[in-house]
């Protein structure tokens, strides 16, 4: 009667249920996650720690590394901001209006999820190169897109596009029309209704999408390296710097930079997980 004893003490690992095979499923899940994710990541952290603090800091916080973080985080932040604005706009248009091509546009939103990053990279690099379709136009205004930090930003806007759209869309679709009608009846203008009633309602979803887009963009590699030009201190992103260190067999330095990136990912993961949980709870309440 160990189950009774456990319930009497008030602490139980697994709530009893008629649904079978918890042990097997849990065992496979934990074994798989440990072998594929947990142990390799621990190996990275140990490698990062397997050096003096001075050599860790020399690699992780060198001027070149700091410039790379600035670019990775800065461009990711700006790209996520653009995606926040355009994502809310696109979600609004897709949910609230009917126009020819709407279904196609809706389906295309997921393209950055499905298109391999290297393909996106060569395509964007070609488009933005000084003789490319968009690059030519920008060159006429004296702006160079490809092989500059602007190119990094463009690639990150591309890969982050779906996140805000896809988090805002369902919330916007579930919004009660009565709320907006009430605002209108109380004399609010359409603009005031949208900014004071609709936007606050979708703000949590939009911020969740923003965080997800930012987290994804910080670590992005494939779509960026083709367009960035990869000049140290100028257009070299942090993941590329890891690869550069690795190619010079500087494993400790690569691990040190990777540890910094991993720490940032963990922080963003915790934030976005909390935001997503809140969003799901609110969704269940509606």
């Amino acid at each position: 009667m160990s189950a009774t004893a456990a319930s009497a003490s008030g602490w139980r690992f697994h709530r009893p249920t008629a649904v079978p095979a918890f042990g097997t499923a849990f065992g496979i899940a934990v074994a798989g996650l440990s072998a594929i994710v947990l142990i390799p990541i621990i190996a990275l952290v140990l490698k990062g720690a397997d050096q003096t603090w001075a050599s860790f800091a020399a690699a992780a916080f060198s001027p070149r590394a700091l410039a790379a973080y600035r670019l990775s985080f800065g461009a990711a932040f700006l790209a996520a901001l653009v995606n926040l604005v355009m994502g809310v706009l696109i979600a609004w248009v897709l949910v609230r209006y009917r126009f020819p091509g709407r279904r196609l546009a809706d389906a295309l939103i997921d393209l950055p999820f499905a298109l391999p990053t290297a393909v996106a990279g060569v395509a964007l690099a070609t488009i933005c190169a000084p003789n490319g379709s968009v690059g030519q136009v920008a060159a006429a205004f004296g702006i160079q897109l490809a092989f500059t930090p602007v190119g990094v930003f463009i690639a990150l806007v591309f890969i982050g596009l779906p996140f805000v759209v896809r988090t805002v869309q369902p919330v916007l679709a579930d919004l009660e029309p009565e709320v907006e009608e009430a605002a209108a009846l109380l004399g609010a203008s359409r603009w005031r209704t949208v900014t004071r009633v609709v936007l606050p309602a979708i703000a949590p979803a939009a911020m969740t999408g923003f965080t997800l887009a930012f987290a994804r963009a910080v670590g992005e590699y494939g779509s960026v390296i083709f367009i960035a030009g990869n000049k140290p201190m100028i257009s070299e992103i942090a993941p590329l710097l890891i690869v550069v260190q690795l190619e010079q067999y500087a494993y400790g330095a690569a691990a040190a930079i990777a540890c910094v990136m991993l720490a940032a990912s963990l922080v963003l993961l915790v934030i976005s997980a909390a935001m997503q949980r809140r969003l799901e709870r609110e969704g269940a309440d509606r």
Partner: peptide, 12 residues
């Protein structure tokens, strides 16, 4: 949320 480069590096 982990960078693909970090995902490869852990196995190296």
């Amino acid at each position: 949320s982990v960078s693909p480069v970090v995902s490869g590096l852990v196995f190296v």
